[in-house]
Design a protein around this nucleic acid. Structure first.
Lengths: 346, 346
DNA sequence: GGATTATTTGAAAGCGCTTTCAAATATTGT
DNA sequence: ACAATATTTGAAAGCGCTTTCAAATAATCC
């Protein structure tokens, strides 16, 4: 224990009267060293307060025990649960999570992925499956296990863990059709580069198509995420000549905004108009009217992604992940359409 | 470019006809190598698609260019903004963020701090200033710059970036007192190990004390965070014999719950009872009645924490951070107390 | 019990970069 | 033009760990 620099593995070896190699083995697979030395090394470690040097370890073993994660956003309620579950599950196995937010921007997404690879992460979590071939190639070349969250089946053939956005949106729409609605409004997130939003809109269209219905341009409002957008889009929708009797929201905050705006406008939900959300966050059940929506397995995705990557990292054979289930949650915000179009807000 | 292993700095040096040392210098401070070689090296880097090996770099330079962050929670709306701003600001300077959630648990907090130090983070962000001496010592010994978020002045003498929780709570309370309220209810987060919650409750008490008022035990409900708790506590409060005319919430979701519960109970806010929140998240302004609350500089804390640590890391002299401002935001949920106690909910 | 096989160990060679330090080259002053 | 000073370079020694590989020890078998 010379100097006051941190003790190294070599110091421990000397203190325990064994070779550095043995200490290394002790650290990595304790059962590969005999009981007597195991004890001596353990003592030495305690005594010197030895802590392995992560960078040295990473350099020699070519593993950093760090996993990257790029989310479209960290602010807001949507991705936090998945991140937390992901981190928790990985921590259990001694992995750390390096995180970044792309702010729903494709360039930042690509840049962060590149950066994380440079950092040497052993595996990577990304959201969605729309990504440039270069970026995808990079991942494949570097041979870093990765998984795409929030989507069920990637067009790009790479593994993903999530739910079927289109199917979920179809369920919501079917529910509304079943109630008798025929005129719809849709509030969608920005579609470009967002396969979740695209999938959901496609789902609505597919469901309608089965009834011979379709969506005119002015029935779909493509907005940046947030309740404020929901308010705006909702009032636009309600102002249109062919006012919809049901408004389908591609993201939950849209629906909160719609509900709130309806209230301001003096429109009764669901009597005058039905509203549906997407995600079933905590507010959905608390609002009145409570929100009919589809529950999505957010924490589950984070947890499963961690398990999947962990399995990959330990070289285990891993089954292709199966799509996770969503659940239509019918609450108070949906009902059959009014008998005849209410002539005005009043 | 032998083998198909990743090119190393040595390969670049050879390709550019200079020594490894020069390439290293080019990578770190390009202006310390002459223009002609700079060009040759740059070319070689491009040609070989060279990417420096982070672990090797970290080992040799004793810097990982990673910063740790431990938040009480990642789920929910509260800390995400700070994390996102923190990450963004650090990314700008080439630093990555390793994140963990303590789930509001002191042991996990300590464990994650230890783990991040083991990972070799160059700096660290934590929330709050209640922490065991051991943990604090560890940080000091390891000489890792760190900053405590969400608090203004740490009792423990270590740097912090945040706002004065007590003062903010005093403002809210003063506002209510000014309106004429004399009977209060408080919904507080769990106090143990949470100096923010403690500070806020103290603030309420301090403000009341100036008017010769105090809080009886049954006027304070200590609950785990969340709107559901807010509902429960609110209905308890309203059921008490000396029903409060104003309910002060130590966290915003409590207030949402209170507002929602009031609505269910048929109580009018602010006519029958005033409600205040704490944080001013997006929903506060959207609800009706909109919520009187205090805005807190959440993203700002994240951003400033990053800047502070960055300055520390580059050895710049850094002024002790000054407390950030909060703002009382008066909206519709507060008004003078009713003339006489309403006899019932009806 | 002695030969075989299986398990533990240590020596030594890196992993890919940074960083002295001294030598080489360029710049300045007179 | 020549010394004196400043700048740019390369050789070499690590940074602290892991991982062959072969030697040493323990366990097993007939």
């Amino acid at each position: 224990m010379r100097g006051d620099r941190n003790p190294t593995l070599g110091d421990v070896a000397r203190a325990a009267g064994v070779s550095p190699a043995t200490v290394s083995r002790f650290l990595n697979r304790a059962d590969s060293v005999r009981a007597d030395k195991r004890l001596r090394i353990h003592d030495a470690v305690e005594r010197l307060r030895y802590v392995p040097h992560a960078a040295a370890r990473a350099l020699a073993s070519r593993k950093t025990r760090m996993v990257g994660a790029v989310f479209p956003s960290l602010d807001g309620d949507l991705f936090g649960g998945a991140l937390e579950a992901f981190q928790k599950e990985l921590a259990r196995e001694g992995y750390s999570v390096v995180v970044a937010s792309s702010e729903y921007d494709a360039d930042q997404d690509a840049a962060h992925i590149r950066n994380l690879l440079t950092c040497g992460v052993d595996a990577l979590l990304v959201v969605g499956a729309v990504r440039s071939p270069q970026t995808l190639n990079l991942l494949v070349e570097k041979d870093v296990p990765f998984v795409q969250l929030w989507v069920a089946d990637a067009l790009n053939g790479h593994p993903c863990i999530g739910f079927d956005n289109q199917a979920a949106a179809e369920h919501v729409t079917d529910h509304l059709l079943m109630l008798g609605h025929r005129r719809f409004g849709v509030i969608s997130g920005i579609l470009e580069g967002n396969d979740r939003a695209q999938g959901r809109l496609n789902g609505v269209r597919a469901s309608l198509a089965r009834q011979g219905l379709s969506l005119a341009d002015d029935q779909v409002h493509e907005m940046p995420f947030g309740a404020a957008s929901g308010r705006d889009a909702f009032s636009l929708l309600m102002a249109s000549p062919e006012r919809p009797t049901a408004v389908i929201c591609g993201s939950e905050p849209f629906a909160y905004g719609a509900l709130l705006e309806a209230q301001s406008m003096g429109l009764r939900v669901p009597d005058d108009v039905s509203v549906t959300g997407f995600d079933d966050m905590w507010l959905a059940s608390q609002l009145s009217p409570s929100l009919t929506t589809v529950w999505t397995p957010r924490r589950e995705m984070g947890r499963d992604a961690a398990r999947y990557l962990l399995a990959k990292l330990t070289g285990k054979a891993v089954a292709k992940p199966r799509p996770l289930e969503t659940r239509l949650v019918v609450r108070q915000s949906t009902a059959p359409p009014p008998r005849q179009t209410p002539s005005s807000c009043a």
